[in-house]
Design a protein around this nucleic acid. Structure first.
Lengths: 348, 348
DNA sequence: CTGTTAGCGCATTCAC
DNA sequence: GTGAATGCGCTAACAG
C-alpha cells in the first residue's frame, strides 16, 4: 500500500482521499459550511472558518476539481493541439501560453497530431469529451490552414498558422515586418548591395520575409542584388547559394537570410572565400535560434520572431473568448524584434 | 450566439450540450438503458441499441468524461512536469510519452516549472487537484534530482533526471553505454590516438559519457590521448579545445565529443587547420541533434540517446504503476544507438 | 451565521 | 431486457 493511502486510511478510516464531507464531519459542521469556509464565500464565523481550515489541513484535504468542474460546467483546462512537436516553433509558443495561463489556474492538455488530419480529429474529440474550455491550434508553418469550423462548442484560437477562415481568430508572426526590420538594419549599416538567400518558397514565411526585404529596399530607392534565392531551409543551401552569389555578384556587401540555419551556411562560405564579416559582407539571419546564432563566427545578428509573446497573445485571446463566450474574428500579427550581434556590426 | 449553441438549442430545447438524459428521452428509453446501449454493457435489445445510437448521433452527444471521471475515481489523465521546456531533451520525451499514452486514451497535462521549486510544488498541487492518475517528472540534466517523496496519492515516474531516492522508479539515458558505443566505433575504424572533448563536468552526462569512452579504450588496451577536456557545452569550446589539442597532441586521429554542438566546433577548427575529415581525424558527436548533425561538413556521426523511446518507457512504466496501484522501484536505462555518417567513415 | 436540499452527468446495482 | 434509485464530490440556493 502506498504511503499516502496509509495516511488517508489512518485519518479518515478509508483508503480514499479526504473529501469535503470528511472535513465537515471532523470540524463538526455541515458540508456547505465547510465549503463556504474554505472558499471564502458567504458569511462564516471566524472561529468556524478556523476550525474547518484546521481540519482540512489535518486531513490533507484538497478540493476535487473534477467535481467542481462538473458542477460549474467549466473545467479551467484548455487543449493545445499542435501538428508537430518536433518543430522548434511550437515550444516557445507553448511556453508563452503556459505562462499566460499559469497565473490564472488554467492547465493545458497537450496533443500532437503529427500532422495527420485523422489524428487531429481524434484529439479534438477527446478534448471536447474532457470538456476543455477552449482550444489553441498551433501549426508548424505560417501558411493558412483549414479551419476547425464554427460548430465546436468552445472557442478556438489559431497560433502560428492562421486559419483560412477570416472569421476565426488567428495570431501569426509578422514575417513581412521582420524581413523589413532585417533589411532596414543592414541599410542603416551603410550597405547598399544587398542579397537575399532564403528557404522553401512553398512556405509563406519565405515569401513574406522576402517581401519585407523588398519593401525596405524599395523605400530606400534600392533593389536587391540579383533575385531572391529560394530553396530549402538548410545550412547546405546557405553555403551553395553563397558560392553562386559571390560568383555572379562579387560586389555584394550584405546578405539577408531567411533563417539562421541558412545564415550559418552563408557565414561558412564567406569565410572560405576570404570575405571578412561584417567588414566586407554583413549577414543577418532570422529566428534567433540561440544554439545557432550565439555560436556562429561571429555571433549572428537576427530577427527574433517573438514566438513566446505570440503564445501569450494566443492564450490571452482564448481566455477572453472563453469569458465572452465567443472569439472575435481577425488575424493579429506578433511583432518581430531586431537582435544585433557581431555579423552586422563589428565588435572590438 | 456560437453556431453550435444554436444547434444544441434547436435540438434539445436548451443551449447546453446534449446529455445522456437528452438521448434517453429522445430514444424513448431510460437513462440507464441509454448508458448500457452506448457503452455496450449489459444486455440490451439490438433494436433499442440502434434507436439509442441513432438518437445520440442526431443530438451530437459525446459522453462527458468529467462526469465519468468523478464517478469512477479515475480521470485518464496524467501530468508531465518538466523543469525546462527550452531544453531540447524534453520534447522527444514528451512525444514518446504522448504516443505511448495516445493509443490508450490518456491525455497529458503539460506543466513547466521553469526550474523553480516553488512553481513545481504549485503545479503538483494543481495536478493532484485535477485528480491526474499519475505524474511523469522530466528533468533537464541527468543528474539525480530530489524525489517528490512517497506521500503523493498517485504514482510518479522520473524521466531523464532520475530520482535521488532509489525506491522511486526512474528512467534515464545510458550515457556510459553511449560513450562506449562512440569510442568503440572509432576504434573499429582503426583509430588508436583518440581524444575526448566534452562539456560541463557538473553534468552527470559529461562524466558518464567520458567514463564510457574510457571503458571502451581500456578494453582495447588503449588510453586517451591527453586528459578528457571538460568545459562548456558550446561550439566555441569545441573550436578552442581542438586548437589546444592539435597543439599538444598533433598525432590525434579521432575525437569523441560529448555533444553535437561541441563536435561542430571541433569540425570547424580541424578544417581551419587543414585536417581532412575523416581521413586524418574522425569525429563523432552525441545527441543526434539533426539540425546540427545533418548539415555539418561532413555530416556528423553521433550517438542517438533514444529519448523518444525513453518517453515511451516512462509512459508505460507509469501506466503499469497506475494499474498496479504502485510503482516498482529502480532505475532503468534507455539505450543509445550509433548513427554513422561521414565524419567517421568517408562517403564516396 | 449555519444546515438542509437539490442537482451537475453519468454508470451501476438491483428489482421488475 | 428495461427502469428506478443511488451516489461520485462539490457548490448554490434557500430556510432556519
Amino acid at each position: 500500500m502506498r504511503a499516502e493511502a496509509a495516511v488517508a486510511e489512518a485519518k479518515t478510516g478509508t483508503n480514499r482521499a479526504a473529501t469535503l464531507g470528511d472535513v465537515a464531519r471532523r470540524a463538526g459542521v455541515s458540508l456547505s459550511t465547510a465549503s463556504k469556509a474554505l472558499n471564502g464565500r458567504g458569511e462564516v464565523a471566524p472561529s468556524t472558518r478556523e476550525r474547518v481550515e484546521h481540519a482540512a489541513r489535518e486531513l490533507g484535504f484538497t478540493t476535487n476539481l473534477v467535481a467542481r468542474s462538473l458542477l460549474e460546467g467549466k473545467t479551467g483546462t484548455v487543449g493545445l493541439l499542435t501538428s508537430d512537436l518536433e518543430g522548434r516553433f511550437v515550444i516557445p509558443i507553448l511556453m508563452g501560453a503556459e505562462d499566460a495561463f499559469g497565473a490564472g489556474q488554467v492547465n493545458i492538455f497537450l496533443c500532437d497530431a503529427r500532422g495527420d488530419a485523422i489524428r487531429e480529429q481524434h484529439h479534438i474529440r477527446a478534448l471536447l469529451n474532457r470538456r476543455v474550455d477552449g482550444i489553441i491550434v498551433v501549426g508548424h508553418k505560417t501558411n493558412p490552414r483549414a479551419s476547425l469550423g464554427h460548430r465546436l462548442p468552445v472557442p478556438v484560437v489559431y497560433a502560428y498558422a492562421p486559419s483560412e477562415d477570416p472569421t476565426d481568430h488567428s495570431i501569426t508572426p509578422d514575417n513581412r515586418g521582420g524581413g523589413r526590420l532585417a533589411a532596414e538594419h543592414v541599410l542603416s549599416c551603410g550597405r547598399t548591395r544587398i542579397a537575399h538567400i532564403t528557404g522553401d518558397p512553398a512556405y509563406a514565411a519565405a515569401v513574406d520575409r522576402a517581401q519585407g526585404v523588398s519593401d525596405a529596399l524599395a523605400s530606400a530607392g534600392l533593389k536587391l542584388v540579383g533575385e531572391p534565392m529560394f530553396s530549402v531551409w538548410t545550412e547546405q543551401w546557405g553555403r551553395d547559394a553563397t558560392a553562386a552569389l559571390l560568383d555572379s555578384h562579387p560586389e555584394v556587401d550584405a546578405i539577408v537570410c531567411g533563417s539562421d540555419q541558412i545564415a550559418r551556411g552563408v557565414l561558412d562560405t564567406l569565410r572560405d572565400y576570404g570575405r571578412r564579416i561584417p567588414e566586407d559582407v554583413a549577414v543577418i539571419g532570422f529566428d534567433d535560434w540561440r544554439a545557432l546564432t550565439l555560436n556562429a563566427r561571429p555571433p549572428l545578428s537576427t530577427i527574433d520572431p517573438g514566438l513566446q509573446e505570440l503564445g501569450r497573445m494566443a492564450a490571452r485571446a482564448l481566455f477572453g473568448a472563453i469569458e465572452a463566450g465567443e472569439t472575435s474574428p481577425g488575424t493579429s500579427y506578433a511583432p518581430g524584434r531586431l537582435v544585433i550581434r557581431g555579423s552586422t556590426i563589428a565588435t572590438r
